[in-house]
């Protein structure tokens, strides 16, 4: 792939949206690893763990320091949301919510790093492809969503029992008292539940991916203003300064707006995960 030529606006954007791929099994696309997404995602995950662990180790119930105060603000916020949206035992779910919120936020935050900065730096050391925002990679967003779904299945089975969960899948949402009607409705119930269950991770993953991918694309489109311009052109030509100033203003506006989007998307991902996990805890037999 490295030998392909990227020219013009289309080439520039395409190049930016191409992952750095390592082929574990050559010829089999499933065994390709998007190593840039994985590395950025892991680095940010470790950054999150390191930063929070540093505070957790020194956490005092006395007067908190500035750093602890900041961390407690986030933890307290997440804890409030968990208490609101989730009624079960939150020993695992609350930390999960914190992880999702902070990690997704950090991954989204990479979108605010100037689009050419890290890829250009990478190219200086011979890395030709680099996508710096992990959440613009479907693999990452689906990874998170499926991770949440694994827990949803786990809790559904643990709370309701394997039989209880299976029963719920075939007897809801259409309920009947008559045994014949129950059997008649079972296929429809199962179909609806399968669709509903599949829709959860897909909506989680695609919502995050779509928002961030489009956001990144708009940053790229704004960056095209001064594409292929020499630095001298910015000052010597008539259009140069206009383009430069225009790009600066648009980038600024979009970045400011994007701060809202990345926070909101991290929050939505967390809240929906909580809602799905809460649904896994609810027993329908009660009513």
């Amino acid at each position: 792939m490295a030998d392909k030529e990227y020219t013009g606006v289309g080439g520039y954007i395409e190049h930016h949206l191409t992952n750095n791929v390592i082929e574990l099994v050559p010829g089999n696309p499933f065994w390709n690893v998007h190593i840039d997404s994985v590395i950025y995602s892991l680095v940010l995950g470790v950054l999150f763990l390191w930063f929070f662990r540093r505070v957790a180790k020194k956490a005092t119930s006395g007067v908190p320091g500035r750093m602890q105060n900041f961390i407690e603000l986030i933890v307290g916020f997440v804890d409030d949301q968990v208490k609101d949206a989730f009624k079960g035992n939150s020993k695992l779910v609350a930390p999960l919510a914190l992880t999702i919120f902070v990690w997704v936020f950090l991954m989204n935050f990479m979108d605010l790093v100037p689009v050419d900065l890290l890829p250009a730096a990478g190219q200086q050391v011979g890395i030709n492809y680099m996508k710096v925002v992990p959440t613009t990679d479907l693999n990452i967003t689906f990874g998170l969503a499926i991770g949440v779904m694994i827990l949803v299945f786990y809790y559904s089975i643990v709370i309701k029992g394997p039989l209880g969960y299976a029963k719920e899948l075939v007897t809801h949402p259409f309920e009947a008292k008559n045994p014949i009607a129950i059997i008649a409705l079972a296929p429809f119930n199962l179909l609806l539940n399968v669709v509903e269950t599949l829709a959860k991770p897909i909506s989680l993953a695609l919502r995050l991916f779509g928002n961030l991918y489009s956001g990144e694309l708009i940053f790229l489109l704004i960056a095209v203003f001064t594409l292929d311009m020499a630095v001298t052109e910015l000052f010597t030509t008539l259009g140069g300064p206009l383009m430069g100033i225009g790009q600066f203003i648009l980038t600024f506006i979009w970045a400011a707006f994007h701060i809202l989007i990345i926070t909101l998307q991290a929050y939505i991902f967390m809240m929906l995960s909580l809602v799905y996990l809460n649904m896994a805890h609810e027993k329908h037999d009660a009513h």
Partner: peptide, 27 residues
């Protein structure tokens, strides 16, 4: 979509577990 998904799932569960073990209860 490729094996990156699986790496991310494992990483996600690991980070969650570490958060549950070493961060959340303390703070």
């Amino acid at each position: 979509l490729n094996v990156t998904i699986i790496i991310q799932i494992l990483a996600f569960l690991a980070v969650c577990w570490l958060t549950m073990k070493y961060i959340w209860p303390q703070i």
